[in-house]
Design a binder for these strands. Structure first.
Lengths: 339, 339
DNA sequence: GCTATCATCTTAATGCATTAAGATATATGA
DNA sequence: TCATATATCTTAATGCATTAAGATGATAGC
């Protein structure tokens, strides 16, 4: 005996397939008695409802939402900001009774899964540029987070303004400023951005934040020295430490470190302490993101809290809603002992 | 104009649908010239290959493999052992050109996705017992890791033997032994297992490891005191610290701590040092898993390395192979400064 | 008693593709 | 030259279900 299908069940009961389908999908379309009968029959026959793949083919939607992570799964999962975001998405999707398909931004090909999903929530610009092209032309719903795709809805915070706010809260007129963690393309190690920068053409959040930092500096008549702006390939301990070490050994020594993430800021503070630099007396540090770990660390970090989990929820909701607007979420500047 | 389909493309070119299908799936079934023509026509028409959902329906396989995590996504992602495993699975699946669908062990219902996937790789016993029942009767391929399901293939290490080995390498005839991290069901906080234990009926790895620890103790004529065996709900800092504190304050004080994970062991060592207990002079500690963090910590930990990433790869390979055997992977006992 | 309405069920078209088996035409070998 | 093999393409059955529109009989209203 082969697997039971709508058809086989219908035949077994001597009713039409439409009726069986209705028994599962539109109970008001048939009598209660018959429905009961059908349902019990299904149970004994081992039929557990309409095949979802066929359903998806017919209805044109599967209930699966793909989340495209900018980098590899492994990296994303280890980054507290990203995994918070993921948790938020997962939570909201669960509410909607939908499913989450994780997709790496390193992948080359979207259309292995496009047909299975209702659309894509794209978190950050995918590492693989080909993916961006594919997302542009994708026929399914696409919502971006932390980066923009022309004509697509997005969820973000005002990175420029937030960076400006945090810098303004910390900077003084005679500061020497360094910025850590600008994200360049195809630069595999930490390095100074230099005078001929390989600008990231994807308008990543780090560039928006840099804009904000620089606006604040201009407001105070400060300039950013060439070797005081560093790229890091990822927000991790080692890359950040390398950049921090280099920058803190510059002459003159920076008095303020504006960082693109809390992880980078934490790492930089550790380096500073190792170098015997006192925080905040000799060096003030500003982070970005707002992660729990900064609360347990001393000195606590001045940072922009963007509540990534809520961002995840908002993204999943916006995806579901079908609205095509670009949503800006609130952020919160929290002053810590580091400034 | 609606979306192009196999049919519409066929009509546009004046050939049969079979030919179009063959152009994509079986190039040897048609002339090179026609194939070229079809492919370019598809490009201009905006048809990018057969719909995968329909394909999956027809072929009966989708190329998507679901990984069921024992706990919530959030927890799994924060546990280095689990996320290592995940990385391994992701890596191997990528090689196979398959896709990874992450599924939480807290979920209640499998059949929302069953029809979309080729099967399940189940990592640890799902928190939600209903899932286990569903996996038992699941018609798709199911492979388990770190726990067993009758009649299903599995990938694991010999937890009992590994635990035995590590304990034998550390224990001395007059030791006072404590065991930390047995996993009970439905016990939400750290607690002594006590004399009337709520045994975990799922043959979790922690029980196998306990078996090994106890076999080693018996071999040396040692017994495990009632309050020297503690449950923790998860392998995290707080739960572990609570258990460790309690156990280390027992009289007589334990001289050996056999832990169910490295995370627990690390946490226990921190507690011990805080209590002024010297390691390994006054207390020897044994972990389980083998995680990078233990290498950076001093004293380094004696532990069983089970190489979770390789386990992930092995699982994905075994899943793909279709073989129904229960595979035991090698482990490695590494002695550290903690013993 | 007759028609309009309603509840209940069926028919049949449809979604998008795969694939075994059949149909042509062309090339091959003796 | 004729029969056979080969290359190339088509037919039609199939996978599993949804859903608008039609059929049937029962109920209600007048």
């Amino acid at each position: 005996m082969s697997k039971p299908t709508l058809k086989s069940v219908a035949k077994a009961l001597g009713v039409s397939t439409a009726t069986i389908s209705n028994a599962f999908n539109r109970p008001d379309q048939l009598s209660v008695a018959l429905r009961e009968k059908i349902l019990t029959a299904c149970a004994t026959l081992g039929y557990d409802g309409p095949n979802k793949a066929a359903q998806s083919l017919r209805k044109g939607s599967s209930g699966i939402v793909a989340v495209i992570l900018s980098d590899s799964l492994e990296y994303m999962v280890s980054d507290p900001v990203a995994s918070q975001f993921l948790q938020g998405v997962a939570r909201e999707l669960e509410r909607q009774q939908k499913h989450l398909l994780l997709f790496s931004g390193n992948s080359t090909n979207l259309d292995t899964i496009t047909d299975f999903v209702d659309g894509f929530i794209c978190y950050g610009a995918p590492r693989n540029l080909a993916l961006i092209e594919q997302l542009r032309h994708c026929k399914k719903r696409v919502l971006t987070v932390d980066f923009d795709l022309p004509g697509r809805p997005s969820v973000n915070i005002d990175n420029e303004q937030a960076a400006y706010d945090s810098a303004m809260a910390v900077l003084k007129p005679d500061d020497i400023v360094a910025v850590l963690g600008l994200r360049l393309i195809d630069a595999p190690d930490s390095q100074p951005v230099g005078s001929a920068p390989m600008w990231d053409n994807q308008s990543s959040v780090s560039h928006r934040r840099l804009d904000g930092y620089q606006r604040a500096m201009e407001a105070l008549g400060l300039t950013l020295g060439t070797d005081y702006l560093w790229h890091t390939p990822e927000s991790n301990q080692e890359y950040a430490a390398k950049a921090a070490k280099a920058v803190l050994n510059q002459v003159p020594q920076p008095s303020v470190l504006l960082c693109m993430s809390d992880l980078i800021a934490l790492s930089a503070m550790r380096v500073a302490l190792q170098l015997g630099i006192r925080i905040p007396e000799q060096l003030r540090v500003v982070g970005f993101d707002g992660i729990e770990e900064t609360l347990r660390y001393h000195p606590t970090l001045t940072s922009v809290w963007q509540f990534s989990d809520r961002k995840g929820e908002a993204a999943a909701r916006a995806f579901q809603s079908g609205v095509d607007s670009c949503q800006l979420l609130p952020y919160e500047l929290r002053l810590g002992e580091s400034s």
